[in-house]
Design a binder for these strands. Sequence first.
DNA 1: CATAAATAATTCGATATCAAAATATCATAC
DNA 2: GTATGATATTTTGATATCGAATTATTTATG
Lengths: 175, 175
Amino acid sequence: MSQGKIGSSTKNVPEKTSTMESILEQWRRERPDIDPSPMAVCGQIWRAGEILRKGVTENWANYGLDLAGSDVILTLRRQGRGATLSPSDLAKDMMLSTSAMTNRLDRLEKRGLVKRTTDPKDRRGLRIILTDEGFALADEMVATHVATEEKLLSTLTKEECSQIRQLLSKIEGAD
Amino acid sequence: MSQGKIGSSTKNVPEKTSTMESILEQWRRERPDIDPSPMAVCGQIWRAGEILRKGVTENWANYGLDLAGSDVILTLRRQGRGATLSPSDLAKDMMLSTSAMTNRLDRLEKRGLVKRTTDPKDRRGLRIILTDEGFALADEMVATHVATEEKLLSTLTKEECSQIRQLLSKIEGAD
DNA sequence: CATAAATAATTCGATATCAAAATATCATAC
DNA sequence: GTATGATATTTTGATATCGAATTATTTATG
């Protein structure tokens, strides 16, 4: 997540109230000259993303991790046993500033899940590696992570899932 | 967005490097016992959302606003001329803590785009209203906002857009 | 009516992020 | 080989967010 509390019970942050359709309705009334359907598409994508994010975050919390931590742990895990990445590699992979990565690694290192090792080829650089504990945690976590996602998507057929992938893949960044 | 700098030129935050397919490939190699396709679906939804978010944020920056500001301004605008919402209403609508809303309103009020007025029915409460300047800005902004979204979605047909909406609407939160 | 519980907004303390500066090291050009 | 520029990471300062505490007011209960 982003605010370092794991199983927070009291919630200051409420659920979204207005439905997509009521929002469109308002815009049609206020600005009949504008076709608001692009808003609906974007809004639906963001909404779905939020729901999924919330679901997987709850699972990560069971391991005492937030989005920040699991992101790093799982990225390292999928490189394979013993593989390493530099802090810059990790930052690039998750579109984060390197300073944010320093902070994430500090926390994970303090928890004993990753280790900073020196890069033998470049004394400026570091290679980040999962500890045995981190590897084991990742290995356990990835199974429930995928199961969680499966559950969140269970109202969709396999066919519909691949339709979603295919359709959304057409939205391409300009960079 | 979230860090109050408008046309930042230097970028510490890089673009995502690894493709969805290469990530799946890694997981298939590391954990052949797990079918990673749910990851692909979620990932594609998040990725598309990020691309869209980036695009519309660039447009908002042209008005000196970030995600936080435009969210409030547009939510107020679509209620209609002269309409008001309480800070709590706004927080609920955009899934934010009320303390975060206090902060957003502080900034917008300082810029002269919204005004805090007292609630005649409840002396605890406030009613937030767009100033004339805020209303005019919102009215101009919503047009380019929708145009921006349209452009970002231009690789999709109308039919494909409504397919996306229909498919994603099946992903429902558990709350 | 008086008191207790609920609600509205703000303030406060903590934290994750970013951009920019600082530090260290590498690579290249001369 | 020395200087200049590029690169890797951390440090620093600013800010937006959250959760909890605070203050003020309303609603409900006896």
